[in-house]
Nucleic acid binder design. Structure first.
Lengths: 349, 349
DNA sequence: TTGTAGGCGTTATCAA
DNA sequence: TTGATAACGCCTACAA
């Protein structure tokens, strides 16, 4: 099956003009007579002519499209961030092309190359948890492809970056658990490679330190696939509760880990005995049993900010030398799951 | 900023061959000497040559890309369906370009046109709740653009379609509520234009009929934006509970409506008194308070099936005349929210 | 004011 | 076995 479209040639032939005349008339050039313009525009309208963006991309080497690479769309944080990205891009006349890396370095590379070679004008990327090698991105960036990192960022490339204040978010959540008099707070987090993992771990440690609680490596568990594999979280929890120091509270570092962790705790009948707080952008934390204490990232705003920065880079005439890393505040929403005294929820019976 | 890439020309110049020789060597043509091939391939590898897909698209009028239009990515059903789409597309060597209509006919049109003119090889679409006019899609379809509808389908275009068995899903859920001895079961659903709305309403009615419960129009509420606007659901619930016949159970017809509805019931302290079941693909229904009875759609499989059908259309040499509408079974997962006797959940305390 | 020619990167056809 | 040329759809420098 093939798809027929009207081209400038068709118009030129039908109207007995040259293609250049038609082209100029369509773009409203002042060097074309009003009459010709009118004839051409009317005919174009009539046969529903649309310029072929592929041809334009080839010619202008730009596409008015922005490529986005995230690990997973089925994730509250990313889908909200994407909405932020779209809200800006749409208004500025850019299209958004979304691809998923599924936390795999390999898939991420394929996606990045696809974007680059399809002449997106710029790239927004949140690194996969499997990514260690940044040479491809570095390469493209040096060749002139504008890139903005968001959420999972890197030190290795000097460009604009946007992320949540993961450090403070983790610090406040952990501190909240400490003030609730939990003594053995475990931390289940993603791949240690990720910027967000490091920042959140740092916040967790800082909170402990501030309250003179010794940091214990055994209470920190890493899920290298960010919770994409159920077993990861299951194993982490089993190790924690079979270990020497059984935690009385858990602080989780990502959407998926948070969810799986709750399921596990429920299975093990530990849900109501264990203090709980986690990073997640779910809209339904309030409906959980018990209602869940969460650290919420400004996902929509992160997407917006990253996109504004990217478009600025794309449209800037001279090359940019001053780069910025914007850090947006998280929000701690305290609900019953992190309170020491977790009676069954009777208020809504 | 501009982005430099290596082209066949560069290779030709460097190696003192013509572009056609290089082109053929790169594609392994047998009419090129082994030696030349080796030289070209090695050099191409060395300078990291990648063919420009934009140029290829222009030449071949195909892009090996599939366009997807959904109402919202931040939706369990759609994000899972997209994963299904990607799983097939990736293996067959197609890229997936995702766009959102935000339940707006206008945005949907823009996206469809974007896809069409960017020469996607085919289109997967789930209609927005605002869509009444299908002439654009009809037009493109008649011009030869392969289109497969999934989830929210239409009678107006004769092509492949895939959807869940919304009728049976609704029937079983409603019947389950009836068997739990709920007497006044309300139904909150999406825009009446949508195929899924009609099918689910049909199932709901059928269940009532089967059990000799008279259908009451006042117990059905439509949210024209599919719950994208919070107020919609709030108003629907208020109307229901301020009406003459106060419902003792609610059956909701979409992910968002389900969630908002629960929030409202919680606010109004009606959550534990009201029987509840709803269409949703959330993974965390079990963690809710009370654990939620859900009708789950085979989202991943719907995405996969639609993509297989689309690729078949794309790659078929002669035009297809026999079209199929596949209907995949839903799954009713019964949990506490729909049980008549909803004691506070003590088992997990 | 309009037309001609060349180029964006690639491949197919034809010629050498 | 290799090279020159034209074409995909569009735009623009230059010519008329």
């Amino acid at each position: 099956m093939r798809f027929d479209t009207v081209t400038i040639k068709d118009i030129a032939k039908a109207l007995n003009f040259s293609t250049s005349t038609v082209s100029r008339a369509l773009r409203g050039s002042h060097e074309i007579s009003e009459e010709t313009k009118k004839i051409v525009l009317e005919y174009a309208e009539k046969i529903n002519y649309r310029p072929n963006p592929v041809a334009l991309s080839l010619k202008e080497r730009r596409s008015r499209a922005i490529g986005v690479v995230v690990s997973e769309i089925a994730n509250n944080f990313f889908s909200q961030a994407i909405n932020g990205i779209e809200s800006i891009a749409y208004n500025r006349g850019y299209h958004v092309i979304i691809t998923q890396s599924h936390e795999s370095e390999e898939r991420e590379k394929v996606n990045v190359m696809h974007h680059a070679s399809r002449s997106v004008d710029g790239l927004l990327i949140s690194l996969s948890s499997g990514t260690v090698d940044l040479t491809l991105l570095k390469d493209l960036y040096e060749k002139g492809l504008p890139i903005v990192f968001f959420d999972r960022i890197t030190d290795e490339i000097d460009t604009h970056k946007v992320t949540a204040n993961n450090y403070l978010g983790a610090l406040h959540a952990t501190e909240h658990l400490i003030l609730q008099e939990f003594k053995k707070i475990a931390h289940i987090t993603s791949s240690p490679y990720l910027s967000i993992t490091k920042e959140r771990l740092q916040g967790y440690k800082e909170a402990l330190d501030k309250h003179n609680i010794p940091f214990n490596e055994a209470l920190v568990k890493y899920c290298n696939h960010g919770g994409m594999i159920v077993d990861e979280v299951e194993i982490a929890i089993k190790e924690l509760f079979n270990g020497e120091i059984k935690p009385d509270a858990i602080f989780t570092a990502s959407d998926r880990i948070t969810t799986f962790c709750l399921s596990e705790l429920k299975k093990l009948q530990l849900k109501k005995a264990t203090g709980f707080a986690g990073f997640t952008n779910t809209r339904v934390g309030e409906l959980f049993d018990p209602p869940m204490t969460v650290v919420q990232q400004p996902a929509f705003e992160i997407g917006q900010t990253a996109t504004e920065m990217l478009i600025q880079m794309i449209e800037s005439k001279r090359s940019i030398t001053e780069f910025e890393t914007k850090i947006l505040d998280t929000k701690l929403i305290i609900r019953k799951s992190s309170l020491k005294d977790k009676k069954p929820d009777l208020t809504t019976v």
